[in-house]
């Protein structure tokens, strides 16, 4: 039983230190661990967690880590208070090493931020993170979230919602919370009518 907490802590330590370029790359790392490797939750459950994490206040990475830590423990059949413990461990672990690193290099890097070697590593990381996030999105394209491909109402509506949200987000930078709420409303109306 205590194994899960150790595992969670170690896992999120790793996730924290390997997150470069913001919350979305952290989503790729969390997904790989809790969905693909450990199978602690389904891709659909993880998608729901992402929806909530983007609609509630605060850093998306912290929200996702908190919610994923809670869900992993509770899905194992453990009580709610242990789920809370798991979520706190996950969010503590995820910030621990990066914050320690900031304190360590705080005085060093502000003097050496123009080091060409560091700049090259950061450029390569930025490129890689683009691929990381693309993989996260591809892995979330599941039949549970989109319906079985074909001419059925769920699949068609899902594709339409995906296309419209993608377009609005890329082109017009429409706020994510507005897009999520609107899509939820579309779902409520469409699936109640048909």
């Amino acid at each position: 039983m205590q194994m899960i907490f150790l595992k969670l802590f170690w896992m999120f330590l790793k996730i924290g230190i390997f997150t470069f370029g913001g919350g979305y790359s952290m989503i790729a790392l969390i997904q790989n661990e809790v969905v693909e490797k450990q199978g602690w939750m389904t891709a659909q459950e993880f998608t729901d967690i992402l929806a909530i994490s983007q609609m509630t206040p605060g850093p998306v990475g912290i929200n996702t880590a908190t919610y994923a830590g809670y869900t992993a423990v509770v899905n194992m059949g453990l009580p709610v208070w242990q789920g809370v413990l798991g979520s706190l461990l996950a969010s503590l672990a995820v910030i621990l090493l990066p914050v320690a690193a900031i304190l360590l290099v705080h005085s060093y890097l502000s003097r050496h931020s123009d080091n060409p070697l560091i700049a090259q590593v950061l450029r390569t990381l930025r490129l890689t993170v683009v691929g990381l996030i693309a993989a996260a999105a591809l892995l979330l394209l599941t039949t549970e979230s989109f319906g079985t491909p074909g001419l059925n109402i769920q699949f068609v509506v899902s594709l339409l919602v995906f296309a419209v949200v993608f377009y609005l987000s890329v082109r017009h930078r429409t706020s994510p919370i507005l897009l999520i709420l609107a899509s939820g409303l579309v779902g409520l109306v469409v699936y109640s009518l048909f």
Partner: peptide, 25 residues
């Protein structure tokens, strides 16, 4: 029903930054 509607939107919101970040990278 609400979640059936918003799940594809969430996936689109993860896919969108790929293109925005590709530009800045």
């Amino acid at each position: 029903r609400i979640f059936m509607g918003l799940r594809p939107a969430v996936v689109a919101l993860i896919a969108a930054p790929v293109f925005r970040m590709a530009k800045s990278a």
